[in-house]
Design a protein around this nucleic acid. Structure first.
Length: 486
RNA sequence: GACCCUAUCGUCUAAAGGUCAGGACACCGGAUUUUCAUUCCGAUAAUCGGGGUUCGAUUCCCCGUAGGGUCACCA
């Protein structure tokens, strides 16, 4: 039987990075086994439904370079893949449960349940439905239904049974059935609850492995019971650690900063770097290899290497490191293309446009080679290229930061540079260095002062590289303008 | 509170009874004839506590402690 995994997001907002991590693991496991990865939209909560959310979720997934074999838009043999379009299926299956007496009608009002809950909590007990409606006979039930009383359908949990299963991550998990509540399966609005729909759909969609966050661990026994009542074969369950922020002991939440998958793309992280970072959130190959392409991850991914823990930290410094690794690996040409795509795709104004108007393609690539290893994300680009566009405003105070006689330094460079016709790095670099050295001048004094005059900054790429990009005319103009301070 | 899960350097983790407890990120020090960044060396740093089992426990068991998750007609 072929391995089939899925991810089942709810269209209640933007796609969370944690969801992306879970997706990645499910995706890799299916691909590793030449199986299928599906997406199913779980939109049974009409109150939290957000219009357009489904499309945005699918779009981010594609933006990260991931795809699905069956699901919304694509279709497939087990559709529809949107739960609100499967209502008749759930009705059919709930009927089976009712007939086999594994489920029952409940007419209790929310008010009564709230009161019950209060009572339990005041006695420091875990809430469990008291089966108030279980004793109703068919006549009473039909009577209420006919007269329009709102009802739900509940799971009839066995009295005393040990529900046990083998979690592929955590190992054997067992819970006594007396701890399990008679879960609502069908809501009074005719929509199924998650617990019911997930079992029916995973069965009908032939899902073989369910990898999901640990928050689902406590409800897994309910699902197991449903599989058993239906006589469905059990898929393998595996529960993944949740994501937390560094130093926190709670699940990642909006107040900690970016949590949506899209946010990191907007900031200018490379999708492949994000994916690589996410792979290690709850998994480790057991070797020292850290840089993983998607294909390599699929090769090495293994369920037995998933971490048995509750929380793993989303360490942004490590993410930055990953992004740097990938940024440096890009050729200058690729970097340029990616930067332009990023600016265009996320509608972010970027100085690369202005630079393109001033400089030739070759000069652009040179600038990129200078900037590439000095920035972490694309959104850092602008702040490191300003002086390639605008002439700096400098005064005698900053010019004198490294020199007692900046005028002399600048005049020296003006002379030297104006006499030079070959502006290649190979010629210019030895010329400037050697001349400074031959005269016994301080390298630091001379080059730092030149750097300030040309860029207005004390921290830049090597100044001679910058001169080569700027060209003779602009270089001389900027030195001259700096000299006007004296 | 009940139930379930978890516990190794500051952080993320490796070591499926025998290792000088390994790696990476961060931090610190040094080198790379101008700053920054890269790169390269180097240093510091960990098995939650207490009992067992064993010739031997990070690893297996028990008890504490700490953390997390769940206890909805939300997923």
């Amino acid at each position: 039987m072929s391995v089939r995994t899925r991810i089942a997001p709810s269209p209640t907002g933007e796609f969370h990075v944690g969801g992306l991590r879970t997706l990645l693991f499910n995706y890799a496991w299916a691909k590793k086994n030449n199986g299928q990865f599906l997406i199913r939209i779980e939109d049974t909560d009409r109150n939290r439904f957000v219009d357009g959310a489904t499309n945005r979720i699918l779009e981010v997934i594609k933006e990260y370079g991931l795809d699905w074999d069956e699901g919304p838009v694509k279709g497939g043999d087990c559709g529809p893949y949107i739960q609100s379009e499967r209502l008749n299926i759930y009705r059919e299956y709930i009927q089976r449960l009712l007939e086999s007496k594994n489920a029952y009608y409940c007419f209790c009002t929310p008010e009564r349940l709230d009161k019950l809950r209060e009572q339990y909590s005041s006695e420091n007990k875990t809430f469990k439905y008291d089966r108030h409606c279980l004793s109703l006979n068919d006549f009473e039930i039909n009577n209420r239904i006919d007269s329009g009383v709102k009802y739900v359908i509940r799971l009839l949990v066995p009295e005393d049974e040990l529900v046990t299963y083998e979690d592929v991550v955590l190992g054997e998990i067992s819970v006594p059935s007396k701890e399990i509540d008679d879960q609502v399966l069908m809501k009074s609005d005719g929509y199924p609850t998650y617990h019911f729909a997930v079992v029916v759909d995973d069965y009908l969609m032939k899902i073989t492995h369910v990898l999901r966050g640990v928050e689902w661990l406590p409800s897994t026994p309910k699902h197991i019971l449903l599989y058993k009542f239906f006589g469905f074969p059990l898929p393998k369950f595996g529960h993944l650690p949740n994501l937390k922020n560094l130093g926190s002991s709670k699940k990642m939440s909006k107040r900690d900063g970016s949590v949506f998958a899209i946010d990191f793309l907007k900031e200018g992280y490379l999708p492949e770097a994000m994916l690589n970072f996410l792979m290690f959130l709850g998994w480790n190959p057991g070797t020292e290899k850290e840089i993983y392409s998607l294909d390599e991850f699929i090769q090495d991914f293994d369920l037995s290497k998933i971490h048995q823990t509750d929380l793993v930290s989303f360490n942004k410094e490590k993410l930055d490191w990953f992004n740097n690794q990938y940024l440096w690996k890009l050729t200058n040409e690729e970097f340029l293309e990616r930067l332009k795509y990023w600016s265009h795709r996320f509608n972010t104004p970027c100085l690369i446009q202005d630079l393109s108007e001033i400089y030739s393609h070759l000069q652009l690539l040179k600038i990129i080679s200078l900037i590439k290893e000095r920035i972490t994300v694309f959104s850092d680009f602008d702040k490191s290229v300003d002086y390639f566009i605008n002439s700096p405003q400098v005064d005698s105070l900053v010019l004198g930061k490294y020199s007692n006689d900046p005028k002399k330094v600048l005049e020296f460079f003006y002379e030297l540079i104006s006499s030079q016709s070959d502006f290649s790095f190979e010629k210019l670099d030895p010329l400037l260095h050697n001349t400074v050295k031959e005269n016994g001048f301080s390298m630091k004094e001379y080059f730092m002062t030149l750097r300030i005059a040309l860029t207005g900054e004390t921290v830049t790429p090597p100044i001679i590289d910058i001169i080569c990009v700027l060209g003779k005319d602009i270089t001389l103009i900027r030195i001259k303008s700096a000299l006007q301070n004296f």
